[in-house]
Amino acid sequence: MLRIAGVDSSIDANVMELLLDPLPETGPAVVTYAAAECDSVPELVGSILRELETLAVGLFPAWLPEGEKLDGPGGAGMAAARVLAMRMATGARHFGPFLAELAAHAIQHRDSFTLRPTRGRAFPAEVRAAGLARVVAAAYRRHEVALVVYVPEKLSSHGETVLVAGCEWLAHQSGMGVWLVGPEVRRVETVHLKVPKAVALLAAGLPPSEPPAAVLRWPPLRGEPARYSEVEQAVEKALLECPWAHGREWNQTYPSNDALFVTIRTDLMWAHEKCVVELDGPEHLTAAKAEMDRLRDRHLDRDGFTVLRFTNEQVLDDLPAVLRRIKKFLLGRRLGLSEGAV
């Protein structure tokens, strides 16, 4: 367990987002946790494990080979999920009984992304911590997971003791790297990182970061709509019925032509037509996020892309209108490209 600080620029939520979104090609899968002051270590650990269980359910079947072929959520699907999980655990570092129970629970709730109390076998916290870390790593095709913990401001002395002890326990039992970001805490080694110039330049122009809105945050899986996003799932479901929507790519990275700008992750992109569609949730209303969006859009525009932005409310209230706008742009761009090729 380490605390991360900058060498010549501070490490805050803005900087961490720029460093981790998109997730670097190498290294561990990284999820972030906004800690709150807790009265006891079991309370803190329990909170984190519940969030990780919700994540594991939401990432299913990405972590279970052949899991996408399962029917659900009936009894046959759950039984098949258990069989696949036990097969996956054979000769691997997964604990078969825990993985089987988690797979059955995940297929039961695969469309809800909410964790409901399991009625099956209960596992001790040590087993859950190690098993969940391995499952999340498998979903992202990484060997390891790191948990970035945002330290609350003005922790009491007792709260700080609980936070450090809980994170130490989690790092030891789960095998995850646990990185603390924020105020200095006692008994934790601080590692100073040199923030890449592109990130430092962009972060310097952003308003102060605000506390993370979600307790646990994680990157979407590349190549598919985010499983936790009702909006992205709704758009993809509609696009499946649209012949004109071919060539789309979800949650891909785009390296800007400007070497001093950060790599950009786009929600939805048609690379050939140079069209990017961004679907903005409430977090985009914060001053820092709005400014980051503006700068990203400007760089994409310089590289010849057109960015179409829609709020979650626009998608959920009038999805046909959103699709008509995207269709109109794509067909117009394709017509221009075909005329230019003549």
Rank of each mutant, 00 (worst) to 15 (best):
A35T: 14
E291D: 13
A287N: 11
A76C: 14
A122Q: 14
L163A: 04
R116A: 05
E25N: 07
H143V: 14
E43V: 11
R324M: 14
E232L: 04
T161N: 03
F305T: 07
E291Y: 08
G336H: 01
H299I: 13
A80T: 07
A288F: 09
E189K: 11
E51Q: 08
L221D: 06
L170E: 06
G74P: 04
L132S: 11
T266K: 08
V188Y: 06
R128T: 05
N312A: 06
A245R: 05
I11E: 00
V188P: 05
L163Y: 04
G340R: 13
R294P: 10
A133Q: 09
V7N: 03
D39N: 09
Q173P: 10
L285A: 15
L2D: 13
D258G: 07
E230Y: 12
D297C: 12
R227M: 05
A92D: 15
A146D: 14
R119A: 11
P152T: 05
A35C: 15
V164P: 10
T306V: 07
P22Y: 01
M1H: 10
P183E: 04
G72H: 01
T190C: 12
V127E: 14
A29M: 11
N257V: 04
A198F: 03
S229Y: 02
R222Q: 14
K197N: 13
M176L: 07
